[in-house]
């Protein structure tokens, strides 16, 4: 199914993925996939396991390399940048199986999110300790604000590995926010959460979008969350675009029902 680029009046696309192919050896993981994400929207990616949703995230964050096609952020092509540049472009992500540092404290994890803003200066750390300390304090201050905003301030100094799963997921979002992103990619943020936690999580994501002015793309299997939270849903199937539209449109789409949602719904 062809995906039409959004018209200009609907808001400029933050992220545009055009005809992306990804091949791992003999396996074609993505075949001509396109995706347009507009400024400020929450866009859901759904589809059966193996549909290529996470692969697409990996392409955008350059952990996987596209075989063909282009990926643009604010009109700038990013599909050939080194992976560490992606966060500098304003894209932050969370990982499906958590990319947290279990041995570090929550605060340290979150401060790593701000690493790209002023970090990695070994010579400064050695020779200009006062300046480094000042920079460190600024970052710590900002990160503690983010922690407080996400109700994580009580666990700031606790090792991340000892926290409950839901809290770790929240921390990963805090870390993503610490990088001052314009685009937030959440890979199954509600996976493994209890029913109450999922509702809470939806509220968190929509609040984060308002408060931090981010555009959100989320991969999610929890249909209740997707339908209530997303402005637009993009359905993937077997490495291709299957359907796209507002949640209620997608839910009524017979192709989506066949491939993913099932008849009983």
């Amino acid at each position: 199914m062809a995906v039409v680029a959004p018209a200009a009046e609907e808001g400029s696309p933050v992220l545009s993925v055009e005809n992306v192919d990804v091949r791992f050896g003999g396996i074609q993981a993505l075949k001509g996939v396109s995706l347009y994400v507009r400024m400020g929207e929450i866009c859901g990616l759904i589809g059966p396991n193996g549909a290529g949703k996470t692969t697409l995230f990996n392409c955008v964050t350059r952990l996987s390399t596209v075989t063909a096609g282009t990926i643009r952020l604010h009109g700038q092509t990013i599909e050939t940048l080194p992976p560490r540049q992606i966060i500098r472009m304003g894209i932050a992500r969370t990982f499906q199986n958590l990319g947290i540092y279990a041995g570090m404290t929550v605060l340290e994890n979150v401060m790593l999110g701000a690493h790209h803003l002023s970090g990695g200066r070994f010579v400064d750390a050695l020779m200009r300790p006062r300046r480094s300390r000042q920079r460190e304090q600024e970052i710590e201050h900002r990160c503690r604000d983010i922690l407080a905003d996400l109700s994580l301030e009580d666990v700031a100094d606790v090792a991340a590995g000892s926290l409950p799963y839901a809290t770790q997921k929240r921390m990963e979002i805090a870390r993503a926010l610490a990088s001052r992103p314009t685009l937030l990619l959440l890979d199954e943020p509600a996976g493994g959460l209890t029913h109450g936690e999922v509702t809470e999580f939806g509220a968190l994501v929509s609040r984060v979008r308002e408060a931090y002015g981010v555009t959100v793309v989320l991969i999610e299997h929890h249909m209740g969350l997707v339908m209530s939270l997303c402005d637009r849903v993009e359905v993937f199937h077997l490495g291709q675009n299957l359907a796209s539209g507002r949640p209620e449109e997608v839910r009524a789409n017979p192709a989506v029902i066949d491939a993913y949602l099932g008849r009983s719904r």
């Binding site: 964050t61 952990l63 992976p83 560490r84 540049q85 992606i86 966060i87 500098r88 992500r93 990982f95 990319g99 540092y101 279990a102 041995g103 570090m104 340290e108 401060m111 790593l112 999110g113 690493h115 790209h116 002023s118 970090g119 990695g120 200066r121 070994f122 750390a125 050695l126 300790p129 480094s132 300390r133 920079r135 460190e136 970052i139 870390r175 990088s179």
Partner: peptide, 27 residues
């Protein structure tokens, strides 16, 4: 001086998970 602050964190980050470290912008 090297082990506290950002430089210390980035070293531990690349030790514990280089992939995640790189996606956080660690060189």
């Amino acid at each position: 001086r090297l082990l506290r602050g950002d430089t210390g964190r980035l070293l531990r980050a690349l030790r514990d998970n280089p992939l995640v470290a790189e996606s956080l912008g660690v060189n």
